[in-house]
Nucleic acid binder design. Structure first.
Lengths: 242, 242
DNA sequence: CGCCCCGTTGATCTACATCAATATAAGTGG
DNA sequence: CCACTTATATTGATGTAGATCAACGGGGCG
């Protein structure tokens, strides 16, 4: 079992959280955000490489990422794995598991991370008094559907260089929204994980990084990426990518 | 504008609909299903090739497919298209549009079709009295997320023959659930549409159909498919596909 | 310090795309 | 209802993006 951390009155709550504008409370009236404070009663720390949940685990909560990053991956009976997402702070994880209240994917920390536990039963309870919470949750799920569809488009319609370019731009934008530099960041995932996510081999990903660097779009040294020519990358990606 | 058909008292309602066990009411207590009857006040007929909604349209409802079939597709600014799903009777369409209440995809009829209109405002209204409706809707959205993730896995991890085999098995299963033959059916979509959906060219799809037939897995004549060796197809697909 | 994982780069192979020609079915209008 | 047109499907020949196989180098971690 993971270590759970009780959220004490002195802790940060939704209403005072820096991720306020990105996470669950996004777009909710300020008055209602404060009601969310009682919703998150605990947090979970996940050390790098460990799982927040596994395929088959009972779904009792969804989770807002407070710090760190995670990947979600499907695994079929033959052990074949497909990464379906890399999640950053402020994003919600676990909405795959609401069909039969069993998760159908694994959620694994890419680095030491911490998530806020949003218990479903308590959310339902609270939603009776806070109607906007219901809509908000619906929006988050719809967003997740769109994210997945966007990935389908990336895999179905783009060539390798376009996929990687789109991946970098997408990451850049999400990091920017968190207040980090959109042009300089550390990749939290390996070449192999990027390749798996994008339907490519790690060699192809590595070669593309080298090529992008050679052509002046980026500077890259292991997992450290500097984007030098965002406009160029954007053109490369072909789409105005998601 | 599409032609709307009022649902009169004599019409079929959710509680008497044959798709009862597959569609929105799935798993809801019988007593609550009857309350859904007042939810669906109209239906829409969509002729083959016409759209139920387009990218950018305001989302005021989701739709339960009553007859026929539709495809959903993304389209980026350059006109590049990616089909993200083929939808059959009993399935719900339109859940992509709940982020900003604008659809981000097109929904186009593959044949003359009819859908039940489930207005969001009325669903919210009704959900106050029928708690299971809220859960049900959540399940449907989670299912859609999983469907998309499964497709990501198909595109990211499977080779062409595996993709097409998985596609046929999946279609077969869904048709079987509707009471149709799992081994003999008419494809409602073209080779090109199948190819787009699976990230392949129409030529590759056509060749695979021919090869599957040559190797005795199926009989195929244009859009008419007979599955002769389901077990063989299953093995071919590699995964136990979704 | 030493081990092992991760990333890079090169050589070669192949699955699928592309280009092209023909066949068949489905509309369409006289 | 048939002639004509236009979509859709099949099949073949060839090209290529990306996979696979293989060797090596560098960093991080115990």
């Amino acid at each position: 079992m993971q270590k759970k951390i009780a959220v004490t009155p002195e802790s940060t709550h939704c209403s005072t959280c820096m991720l306020n504008e990105i996470c669950l409370p996004l777009g909710m009236p300020r008055s209602e955000v404060s009601k969310l404070d009682e919703l998150v009663k605990e947090r979970i720390r996940i050390p790098k490489g460990k799982a927040l949940f596994h395929l088959g685990d009972k779904t009792e909560a969804i989770y807002g990422i407070r710090s760190g990053s995670l990947k979600t991956q499907l695994e079929d009976s033959s052990g074949q794995v497909q990464i379906t997402g890399f999640l950053l702070p402020g994003e919600i994880i676990g909405m795959d598991g609401l069909v039969d209240n069993r998760h159908v994917s694994h959620a694994i920390a890419l680095e030491d991370s911490e998530v806020c536990v949003i218990r479903l039963d308590e959310m339902d309870q609270l939603a009776l008094q806070v109607p906007s919470l219901q809509w908000q949750f619906r929006r988050l799920m719809s967003k997740e559907i769109n994210r997945a569809h966007q990935l389908v488009m990336t895999l179905g319609a783009l060539r390798s260089e376009q996929r990687l370019a789109a991946f970098l731009i997408n990451l850049s934008q999400r990091l920017a929204a968190l207040g980090y530099s959109p042009t300089e960041f550390i990749l939290r995932m390996s070449r192999e994980e990027i390749g798996n996510y994008l339907g490519l081999t790690l060699e192809t990903v590595s070669r593309l990084f080298s090529r992008f660097a050679r052509e002046g779009f980026i500077r890259v040294q292991q997992r450290e990426v500097h984007i030098l020519d965002m406009q160029g990358l954007r053109q490369l990606s072909g789409t105005d990518c998601g």
